[in-house]
Amino acid sequence: MDLSYLWSALQAGAGKILPTVVLALVPFGIGVLLGLPAALGRYFRVPVLKQTLDVLVSLIKGIPVLLMLMAFYVISSQSFDSVMQSLGLPFSFRGLPKGLIAGAALAVYAAAALSEVFRGALASVPKGQYDAAYACGLSKSQAMRRIILPQVLPVSLPMGCNIMIALIKSAALGSLVSFIDVMNAAVNSMAASYRFLEAYIAAALIYWGICVITEQLFKLLEHHFARRRTA
């Protein structure tokens, strides 16, 4: 262990905090946008849609993120060029940012995981809330928007936080599809000196920091909602 190497690995890794956080945040956002409607479809047993989504979610949940990531990479390396050629678009696989591939794989994972979270949260809202909303003359969509979803979102926060942290940690897998994240940057900076232990410790410290901050942010959100509910 040499602290001066650790310090320079920390600096190299810290330079890639932003891409790493973006690689977790964007899939999280997409996951919320896809996962919430999916959860509603599953919870309210929309015929066909529910069965399709059930199967899809359990399939996705069964595939390791790493496998998904590498499969996406292979698929795009094999067919991206020919698809773009047949569409007449001037893009090539070589120019494709590898973060997009990693992001797409993580978004699929996030959508499946978050749909499970939202479904659980929906189930936690008592049936009486629906009856009361309808009795007050609210339409179905009004009841959803004003009564049900405002209760669903705070309940989903703790599990949502877990998924966000899982995504941040999964961003490290981006290094396996040549996306340069915190870990990759730290390791690359030590490639000449073979100080890999320092590189990985530096990467771990940075990830740890990001995850602890994320956890605190989610806790703040939880407090915010909890205060509003009692006020």
Binding site: K169, S170, F196, Y200
Partner: peptide
């Protein structure tokens, strides 16, 4: 708070 991949190498 750290990826398993990183833990593995450490």
């Amino acid at each position: 708070g750290t990826p398993v991949l990183v833990q593995m190498f450490i």
